[in-house]
Design a binder for these strands. Sequence first.
DNA 1: CCTCAATGCCTTTCAGGCCTTGAGGT
Length: 350
Amino acid sequence: MPECPELHLAGRYINETCGGLVFEGGVQRSAVGRGPEALVFRFGMSGSFRLCEASSPPRHAHLRFFTRESPPRALCFVDPRRFGTWRLGEAWQPDRGPCVLLEYPAFRENVLSNLEDAAFDKPVCEALLNQKYFNGIGNYLRAEILYRAKIPPFEKARTVLEALKHREQNSSLTLSKKLKLKRDNPDLLELCHTVPMEVVAVDKNLFDPSDSDNYAAFKNWLQCYLVPGMSSLRDRNNRTIWFQGEPGPMAPKGQKSRKKHAHLKADPEAPTPMVTTRASKRRSGGAEEPPKPAVKEEEEKAVPDGPRKGRARGKKKVAAPPTLSEPDAPVRAKRNRTSARRGRGAAPAV
DNA sequence: CCTCAATGCCTTTCAGGCCTTGAGGT
């Protein structure tokens, strides 16, 4: 099997000292044949890497890299929901802007010099998920950033960002006063850098719900997202935005703000939770649709470089009986989505 | 037991699908 001397993981090189790694999993043959290029992984909502004994991989370890030790270990790409992807090559795909973590000056410039873009007509909470400008910001980060900036999520993005531009151009302040202002009151774009930095600075996998310690640390780090007492609304993309205080002028009408019950964190200051029905009617997947025939799956596997098939499969059957998902079978080649997808989404928006 | 929501992103795009798990309601 082909070897890969190093893995390029979300901008970091991980050099294993165990004499090389061997692929197992759904990497395309044609891609592997190109040689030892960098593999860039994008973690989906639930994906992570875990190093473990090769003989006892965790569930949902869909891709494994074995060491040559004895006994061998396996670096496992654990991804229960199979939302993660990987691709060869290191560059951002063209539609993504500069990274909020590693390219902060360019990121800032890219936003402030393009404020006429229609992307900024939207509420700031929606604009923050636009990876063309906010490469790396995901749902929980936008909540944490706006909360710390004390900006209503449904304030118009351009209004918020134009104000930053004016503050930047205010030359009446001395340099030291500007620096102090910056330190004491980081603006929205600065927070887009510093808040994610807090997350990656922790030398733990904060996103692994199966690791109770790390996950508790992550939950504890959150100040707004999923926090009892905070309000939430669905944005126009049907994603939940968590916030405190007023939602802002562009808030969707006819939607009641929900507040989280105090299950996770005791919050004596939290007002009585407003009990409303679930605002979202977003359909859940899987359970309503019967599994696709194996033949179809094999067809898709056979042409990994062919034209990409759309993922939308039309309206779901309403009355289809729920199907029990099988326990994670090790060679379950249901659909080689990970390798067959276009090489996009290299940056984990977190 | 059932429904919904979850750290994203894709396209047959502007909403539903991809997928599994766990919480919460009945």
